[in-house]
Write a protein that binds this DNA or RNA. Sequence first.
DNA 1: CGATCGTTTGATCCGCATCAAGATAGGTGG
DNA 2: CCACCTATCTTGATGCGGATCAAACGATCG
Lengths: 273, 273
Amino acid sequence: LYLKDTFMPVRQKILPGTINLESIKNIPLFFGLSEAEKESLYKEANIYFYPKKEILYRQGDPITRFYLICNGAVKLCHETGEGHEVTNYIRTAGDTMNATAAFSPAGGVHGSNAITVKDSIILDYSIEWLKKIVQQYSSITGNLLSDLSARAQNLELEIKNQNYMSSQQLLACFLTRACVVEGLNPKAFKLPYNKALIASRLRMTQETLSRTLPRLKEFGITVETKNFKFNDLQSLERNLCRHCPGAERCRARQVIQKTLPKDEAITTLCSVS
Amino acid sequence: LYLKDTFMPVRQKILPGTINLESIKNIPLFFGLSEAEKESLYKEANIYFYPKKEILYRQGDPITRFYLICNGAVKLCHETGEGHEVTNYIRTAGDTMNATAAFSPAGGVHGSNAITVKDSIILDYSIEWLKKIVQQYSSITGNLLSDLSARAQNLELEIKNQNYMSSQQLLACFLTRACVVEGLNPKAFKLPYNKALIASRLRMTQETLSRTLPRLKEFGITVETKNFKFNDLQSLERNLCRHCPGAERCRARQVIQKTLPKDEAITTLCSVS
DNA sequence: CGATCGTTTGATCCGCATCAAGATAGGTGG
DNA sequence: CCACCTATCTTGATGCGGATCAAACGATCG
């Protein structure tokens, strides 16, 4: 850390020249850039020093900046419904933050808090600016970035779901999503895949899936041999959202409630498909 | 499906004009493209019809093509060490396959099999060609794609690990990786974070972490208060790799064995950080 | 010195995996 | 049409890993 002798109790802007730029040059994101690109990237960047335990942003804040950690470490965490803290990731030097959010179509808000766990030096850009840079050249590139972002966001959601949802909830999510993806009628549909495949996809055994199916009745889903029926979306919402971590709970709740009155397609709650 | 009346028992090339291109135009990847881009993308694409249960590629095959599903569904699956099949994802219309592999630095081989679970129409491109297209415009874009790809690949690995590894294995992975990321000496180091943070990151309770620490001795890792020591990498390798799904097992094994003789940095086994 | 934080230990419980066996359905050939 | 077979699915009994609740322990600090 190039500034470790200086006492910095609070977030503090670092002016060009104050910091040794060599450390930045070793960051993968800047590999192989043309001089022009480097120039514009350096000019547009904010560089800040953050002491340990400083909050970069809070869950629920609108997403506006793209971060790049030069030095130190940041935890991404959120509060669960039950009140205790869950850390999703620890990001360290060279890692980016908000890359997925930057290129996903919807603007949205942060799903977690970002807090330094060590003294850190972090660089940030306006997302608007970054998006413009990327898309001015080729739109297939922008689309690929969106695709990868969506993929990564789904994976993050899936990790949370796998950890904090019961087999009932996972299965209900899967069925819900299947309706959307496959364009099925929630009032009466047949399984699009055989049960072995679904169990395998949900990372549970066939036996567990088999035992879980009848217990979906508690969630307002009736099952008879291969015929499924969502008949109580309110109950589904109540049960799916219970125990979900903060951001997801809200998202699921909103989504179901929004689709309730129209009672048409049930939108995506869950990453599993 | 535009060709459903035709009987096609095997993979079969579809010539331009045979298929209704409207369905392709609704795919997000092609949104907002310039005419020139569209032109070159359509020209370069292979379009194939695949019947149900057709194998697109096998685990271990070199990665050469980027796929885009127009219609149908594909499962990505692999065999576990114990012999039964695990499905990682089910990809459906509009999803891409190998996007992450296409933009990660190393070429590499497929970590899973891809098999259609319905009759499908799938489009594919050479990865080389796609890479060239993307990088001819701006290298920051290429770097962003690499960053997102790496992120997504780590998330996939994390999902598998969370599901198939014991708390001992997860913790050992975390410590191994911490040595690499933080540049610690495997022969003697202190925890870079406090235990509450680590437990939270590993999605286990503090109590479990506490009980797991002494049991790391079985893996050749000794723990005294806050001092850690890897003293038997062979044992670590044996225990970490046991129960891992195919691709990861091999990767972990190779990585440890490669670092064994030199006994320097232990390379990344696990996505958790 | 008590107070708070970080950590450990013990007792208990619950969900899912595992192993094993039975049930149902779909398809084939006689 | 029935007997047979295999694939698919269900049910039961048991065990294990980690969560939960509760309490004790140790360290650091005012």
